[in-house]
Structures are given as C-alpha cells and as structure tokens.
Design a binder for these strands. Structure first.
Length: 783
DNA sequence: AGCCCCTAGCTTTTT
DNA sequence: GCTAGGGGCT
C-alpha cells in the first residue's frame, strides 16, 4: 500500500499525484494508462477521499472489473467495493432506476437492446404505413441512435435544415416522424434503449437542479477511461457532473479513436481544454508493452494520418523480431496457416494458447480460424458472437420476467404471448395491437379488459388465463426473490419442461442454457451486498436491467488458456504475446464501407494502429488472395496499409502456405498436395469433398435399390375454371378436385365441426388427409 | 392457427 | 453461407 508510487515513471507519477482540478492524460498504447488510473484512485483513497465519492467510467464491463480488481490489489482491503466503477451505461442505468419517476418512467423500466429497439422501429414504420424496403428498420434505428448520441431530440431533428435536406435527398422524408413516434412508443412501453440511458440521464440532470446537485456532491472525483471514444451526450453529462468540483480526469489516446461510427468524436479531447480555465495535460509516451520493432512500425503507420495530437511512442524494450507478412491463397489457407503457426510456436518457443490472439476486422472472418483451430485441436475462445442473453430460449424466459416486472413492455409481451403455443396467433395479436392503438392504451391493458374488445369466447378465455398467469407471478415478487420467481415462471409456463423433453443435441444445450440462466439469477441474488448506505437492490427488475448491459465477453474467462479470437475493436485495451492481424485486404481492411472520406480512412488506419500495438513480442500480418463473401469467391488486393509499413522492420521471407501451394498447380488430385502441405488443404479441395462426389464416398448398395422418392407429388394442373367450393357440406363418396393433388374421392370425414378433415383418395397421389378449413377443394359431383 | 420451405439480404466495428 | 421472415400448405 505504501509504495504504490514506486513502480511509476515520472510522467505517470505526475498524473497520479495531480488529484485536484481538471486533468487530461494523453496515454499512448501500452503506456500504463490503467495502472495510472488505478493508482490514482488508490492514491485518492490513501489521501482520505471516501470511496463513495469516486466515480470511474469505462466503456466495457471488462475494463471496469479489471480496474476495480487492480485498485483492490493496491489497497489490499475491501474499501474498493464502495467505488462507483462501471460503464457509462450501467452507472447511469443505476442512477436512473432511482430517479426514473421524475421523468415519467417506471423505476423498473425495461432496457431495450438493439434487437428490441429495431423491432419497435419496425412496428412504428408499419403502423405509419411506410414502405419498409425504403425505411429499413436497421438503417432508421442507426440514424435515430446517431441523433440521440448527438443530443438531437425529435424536435431538433425536424427543425434542422441540414438533416431534413439529407433525408429528402435520400428520399426518406419521414425519418423525423418515425423518430418521434419511436420515442413515444418506447415511453409508452416504459422502456429505454441504450442511447436513452445517456440521453435521459442528461435530461434528468439538466431539468432537475436538485438531482444535479445531489450527484455533483456524490461524485466529487470523476475519472473517464478511453476518453477519445466519448460521444457528445457523454461529454455533456461529464461536464455537468464535474462542474462543481472540476475534479475531472480524462484518459485517452486520439490515435486509438475507433468508435466514431457510434458517435464518438475526438473533438471532445480538444474541447476539454477549452471548458476549464486551467487543464493540466500529461503525456505518457513510454511504451512498456511491445518490442522496438513493433513500436517503430506502429509509429510509422500512424504518421500517415493528418489529424492527430503530436506524440511519439518510444520503448526501452528489446528490438525484437521483425514483423512477418504472410500471403495465402484463400481465407481457409489463412486459417490453416495461423493454426499451424500457433502449433509450431507453442512447440518451439513454449508459448501456451493464451499467448495468442487472432484479430480481424469483421466478425464474419472468424469461421476459417475456428475451423482450422478445431481441426488442430487447439482450444480457443471466440468473442463477439451472440451473447448468452441473446439466445432464443433465454430471451423467452427473460421475456416473461420482463413482462412481470413491467407489463407495459410490448416487445416482451409480443414475444411470449404465444410461446409456448397457447392459441393466440397473429390475427389475435393484430387485434390486440389495433385495440391498444385506437384507445391509446398498452397491449397489456387491452388484455386486462379483454372482455370489452369482442374477442371470440375461446380466445377470450385463453387471454384471461394468460393475464392471471402473469399477475400471479407478479404478486409473487412481493415476498419472493428474483430466483424463486424465475423458477416459478419456468415451471408454470412449461418452458423448462418443453426443453427438457427435447432430446436433440440443440434441445439439450437449450435446456442447459436455461439452467445456467436460473443459476446466474440465484448467484446474483445471493451475491454479497456492498456496504453502501442504501439497501442493495436485488429485485428482479434490477437483475433484468443489469443483464441487458452485459456483452458476451462478460461471461468469458479472460485468463483461460485458450487462443482468443475477436475483432480489433473488441481487442482494444488488451495485449498478447503473439498477435495475428488477419485479412489485411482492400475492401475488407480498410473496409469498403469506410474508404469514402479521409476521416473514415484515417479511422481505419487507427484501427490498424490498434491491432499492431496489441502485440508484445510477435506480430504476423496476413492476407488472402481470395476469400468467400456471401458464399461466393471474391478477389482482393493486399491492403494499402501493408505498403505503408517500413520495409526495414518487415520479414517477407516468412511465406505462408498460399504462395507455396500455388506452385503446386491447380487440378492435381489433391492427395499429393495434402501430404506435402502437411494437411493444410485448401478451400478448393474442401469444396470438392463437400459438394462433389468424392471418390471414397459410399454409394447405396445396389440391392437396396434407389431410395423411394419420399412423398413426391404428381404434378396436377388445376382445371381452367378451378374454384374452391364451400366445403362445409362435403360428404363421403363425393368426387373432388384438389388444387395440387388433382382428382380424388372422399373416403371418410373426421374431426369436429369446426375442424373437419377429409380422407381423400387421389387418383394419382394416393390417400391424403386434408383439412377442410384450409384446403382449396372443388366439389365436382354430388356423388 | 401453425408448420415448413424458400429466398432475400446480409457484414463494419458495439454499450 | 446463414438467417429471419414471408408465403404456401395442411
């Protein structure tokens, strides 16, 4: 505890000791920024600042967790648990939960994830009777999101000349109206999307001086990590919160700003110095992570950008090895090359799996690496897939929980009202929606008063049962904890049982996932309280708000001995002994979407800078001549970034499988190739075994004959005057024509009067059971 | 009402 | 190559 300053260099020490007044730390990659931040927090506490008064904001839960752990380690006691360390979104969500009533939201408001939000946008677009080909929900949602991140309200939006011009030019003049309707609908649903967590918090602080004052007194020391990634909403919030004490410390690196697509702007760094009278600026330029070679390359790369705060990273580390550039024929070869090299490095240099990371521009690139690693038996962890909470079965159960906590949540309601199937289909749901919209009430209220909306008696009964089910669960909340309620829901709805009975592999997996969800709720309920004055909120509502903000990496153990696969974005802030930067091809990296303006291209270059600086010792940069995109083969040139690399630090001799194998010629049988290249294979041959008749492929023994074509329908062309008859008075023995199966005779009638089924023997298609409610039959003769 | 098959569109990055 | 959603069939 005493010597926490010992391991710091002069600059770092300066940053740690400057505790009062605005401070901006420009921290190059690997310059010990987390160390500085955590030591600074520890130092504040050592000086007697109460942990309750320290707020540290990060962008990922991972970063928050790490920060908390490291502070704990420095302090050597439990005081750190009272710190407010979290992501912008989670910290603000927590505050909003306490204050939501002031802005007309229920305290247990739902947090909509991107899927929910897009679904609401879609609903709104449909209800406005706009063409969803022109108004694509995803596109519109992104536009709304950008507006929110820039603190542009629907009113601002519609009044903004340029935005309106832009929408006009894109032939989408209704976006402003959609935006407005979307906000209203979310409000009606008692729901906030991710951006609302910032926006509403900002509004809260702006509108209620007492709330602002409360949190200004609470958060006397504020620290912001990854400041270059903040958007205007975050910026304004920090400005408000910090206005009283001005103890705001921001840490950032403009060279690593890679989230402008999410509304982040480096302007915030420049503006920060203008907002306060005297800002202390500390630059951390010594890198402790990487070899000389890697740092030189990184510096050279970033020099090509015009927009940047001048600084030069240096290191006292060893020179290290040159950077290897590898070309392969195909994306699959790239995968094989990487897996093979990992294997080789493990043997030769005693690395273990966790020393390796494979980093790429887009998630779609992961497949080739997964396959090759699996084939080599190398354990890996992939980040950025769908998160645990995005899985269907989890969303289903969570849907119930959401509805129980917040019956206004229309997205949850729509999801589970007919799951498991209980007979409330599309027609009924449309009817409910219509009733809700015409009377301006929620769907739930329609269900509660279902008897007033003229549902068929059967449907009415089903609806009323559903309402009773949800209500009974909701009433449980008063006496039982989140776990008990969730367990009860799983049981009452047969959700768990249904999955239990599904014995397929996927069914088993789903069942396990549900169990895991229940376990995690239990764990959460039972986790120790911190010793804050307020009672720690262990309600179901708090649980639900929390899980929406988790990403898939939050369930993964970063220390597991596995090779890590992730996008470069996801790798920011991490470091690995050996890094493979994959897919350095034009159109892919820089991505085709981001080469239209200088700004976009420079952001891609910063991304390249980020991937280079993840490596501590060894760095491979690979690219493939051809790769599959949308299922078809495309050819790409090597990335322009490769030509920006200084040749003296590059090893080109390290040729990947692709260059070598090309000399083995196309069109050989593949067997020799397979042997010589150590089983690397190539997509060409993979494709052959997959799609073509491989020589060894088992054929059906002749004595079995050819497999009978299952239920193949003999084509029937309906008569020219074909018209379905009213089949309610159909009788046995009648001759009928079926649109598809042709002519036949009614053999038997089954089922009740509302669901009649006829067994018909068709002339050319045999006996079939036909549901009369739906089949299109023409009655030809009375007998 | 519900199941199943087909196809259009997708992929930039994420709290 | 995958997948969600639409359309057709029962």
């Amino acid at each position: 505890m005493q010597d926490y300053l010992a391991g710091l260099n002069e600059r770092q020490k300066e940053a740690v000791l400057y505790t009062d007044g605005p401070l901006m730390i420009i921290a190059g990659a690997g310059s010990g920024k987390t160390k500085v931040l955590t030591t600074r927090i520890a130092h504040l506490m050592a000086k007697g600042v109460d942990a309750f008064h320290i707020l540290a904001l990060t962008f990922t839960n991972k970063a928050a967790r790490e920060m908390k752990e490291r502070v704990e380690r420095i302090l050597g006691n439990n005081d750190a648990r009272n710190l407010y360390i979290g992501t912008f979104h989670s910290v603000f969500a927590r505050v909003l939960r306490a204050e939501a009533h002031r802005i007309g939201y229920p305290n247990s408001f739902t947090i909509y994830d991107t899927d929910d939000a897009k679904s609401v946008v879609k609903t709104v677009i449909n209800e406005m009777q706009l063409d969803d080909k022109l108004y694509k929900p995803a596109t519109i949602y992104n536009r709304i999101s950008s507006a929110k991140n820039a603190l542009v309200t629907p009113l601002d939006y519609v009044n903004d000349y340029y935005l309106q011009q832009e929408d006009m030019r894109a032939n989408r003049p209704a976006i402003a109206k959609i935006y407005d309707a979307y906000c209203k609908r979310c409000f009606k649903n008692g729901a906030m999307d991710f951006d609302d967590l910032l926006l509403k918090f900002y509004e809260l602080l702006k509108t209620f001086p007492d709330v602002l004052s409360k949190y200004q007194h609470k958060f006397r020391y504020i620290m912001i990590d990854e400041y270059q990634d903040t958007n205007p909403a975050q910026y304004e919030i920090v400005k408000l919160l910090g206005a009283m004490n001005e103890n705001v410390c921001v840490v950032g690196d403009d060279a690593q700003s890679i989230y402008s697509f999410r509304g982040a702007t480096i302007q915030n760094i420049l503006q920060f110095q203008k907002d306060y009278d005297e800002v202390k600026v500390v630059k951390l330029e010594q890198n402790y992570r990487s070899t000389q070679n890697i740092i030189h390359v990184a510096n050279e790369v970033i020099r090509n950008n015009k927009a940047q705060i001048p600084k030069v990273l240096f290191t006292e580390n060893q020179g290290g090895e040159k950077i290897r550039i590898v070309q392969t024929m195909t994306d699959n070869d790239e995968g094989k090359f990487v897996a093979d090299t990992i294997q080789e490095q493990k043997l030769r240099n005693h690395f273990s799996n966790k020393d390796f990371a494979i980093l790429y521009r887009t998630n779609a690139q992961s497949r080739a690496f997964e396959e090759s690693l699996r084939r080599m038996g190398i354990a890996y962890t992939m980040y950025g897939g769908i998160s645990f909470y995005q899985r269907k079965e989890i969303k289903d159960l969570v849907g119930y929980l959401r509805l129980i906590v917040n019956p206004r949540d229309e997205e949850a309601l729509k999801r589970i009202i007919n799951y498991p199937v209980r007979g409330i289909g599309k027609t009924t749901i449309d009817k409910i929606l219509l009733a809700a919209n015409t009377h301006n009430i929620t769907m739930w209220e329609v269900l509660e008063k279902a008897d007033q909306f003229g549902f068929r008696s059967g449907t009415l009964g089903i609806i009323q049962d559903f309402v009773i089910l949800i209500r009974s669960c909701a009433s449980m909340l008063k006496q039982h904890n989140a776990y008990d309620v969730a367990f009860h829901v799983g049981k009452q709805t047969n959700l768990v049982k249904e999955l239990f009975n599904d014995k397929s592999t996927e069914g088993l997996q789903r069942y396990e996932n549900i169990q895991e969800l229940l376990n995690s709720i239990k764990e959460w309920v039972e986790s120790p309280d911190n010793d804050e004055g307020e009672v720690v909120d262990k309600s179901l509502g708090a649980y639900l708000q929390q899980i929406t903000l988790l990403t898939d990496s939050d369930n993964k153990d970063p220390d597991a001995d596995t090779v890590k696969l992730m996008t470069i974005h996801a790798a920011k802030g991490l470091e690995f002994a050996c890094v493979f930067a994959a897919g350095l091809e034009e159109m892919l990296f820089p991505n085709a979407m981001s080469i239209n303006t200088r700004e976009e291209l420079e952001e891609e270059r910063r991304l390249f800078y980020v991937v280079v600086t993840r490596a501590k010792e060894k760095l491979w940069i690979s690219y493939a001549n051809t790769r599959y995109k949308f299922g078809s083969l495309v050819q790409n040139d090597p990335s322009r970034f490769i030509s920006e690399l200084p040749p003296e630090y590059i090893d080109n001799s390290y040729s990947g499988g692709g260059t070598r194998q090309s000399s083995f010629g196309y069109g050989n049988t593949g067997a020799a190739y397979e042997r010589m290249s150590g089983g690397w294979g190539s997509s060409r041959f993979d494709a052959a075994t997959k799609f073509g008749p491989a020589p060894s492929k088992k054929t059906v023994p002749e004595y079995l004959g050819s497999k009978p074509e299952a239920k193949k329908v003999v084509e029937h062309k309906p008569s020219v005057d074909f018209q379905a008859s009213d089949s309610s008075d159909i009788a046995v023995g009648q001759r009928v024509e079926h649109q598809k199966f042709g002519f036949g005779e009614v053999l038997k009638l089954e089922g009740n009067q509302h669901n009649k089924m006829a067994v018909i023997k068709f002339d050319s298609n045999g006996e079939k059971k036909i549901l009369l409610n739906y089949a299109r039959l023409k009655i030809l003769s009375k007998n």
